[in-house]
Design a protein around this nucleic acid. Structure first.
Lengths: 108, 108
DNA sequence: CTGTATCCTAGAAGATACTG
DNA sequence: CAGTATCTTCTAGGATACAG
């Protein structure tokens, strides 16, 4: 993501970095710990390889994700959160808590 | 939004309702209090009338927003959050706090 | 003022094939 | 394994006009 001028509203600032459901899900997964490319692809239901790659690159640019390449054959690449990425935890946490309550309260 | 089967992950559940930046911004605005259509349009930078309407309708269907129509001329319509909508406050709050910290720490 | 109704387009995402 | 490259499809969103 290119560097945009920071908007007045902090919520908008946050949205510039994570206004995308795939990024939220990537964050959710990496909160737990380091993961390889295919682990991410497996645990994120419905994401394509191309889209996963694009989002990981974007999050790398934004300083949320760290990409570690091991020079082995076959290739091994591990993704993890930077400190900045980890600092988003309260947001994911709030979404997790809300989703749980919502499920409990819904009438079938 | 049509009613989908609830996914396992609570984060995904939450995303089904607010995986859209416009909805987040609408929530942010209505957290403060009731607003009329044009007030929302003014305070949400860059949203078109059509998109605002569509998102408000969707959020109404999802039970997040209440729409109150006053039978006067010219028309007066007020939007407010339902209890369910209000319950999303911790998420918006977390995004607000994060955005503020991010702005403070960024190096120019 | 608060909307609908159309038409249109840019960009996101899917499908598939190929590679170091 | 972890991608890139292409091509196609799809949909969110913009522009504009009009209505109760």
């Amino acid at each position: 993501m290119e560097h945009k001028n920071l908007p007045n509203c902090p919520v908008v600032t946050t949205l510039q970095l994570i206004s995308n459901k795939w990024k939220i899900l990537i964050l959710r997964d990496l909160m737990i710990g380091t993961k390889r490319f295919h682990e991410l692809k497996s645990s994120i239901q419905g994401i394509s390889q191309k889209v996963l790659t694009a989002n990981l690159r974007s999050m790398e640019e934004d300083g949320l994700v760290h990409r570690e390449v091991y020079p082995v054959v076959p290739p091994k690449v591990e993704y993890s959160l930077t400190l900045l990425g980890q600092s988003l935890e309260p947001i994911i946490q709030a979404m997790y808590i809300w989703g749980e309550k919502y499920k409990k309260n819904i009438q079938y």
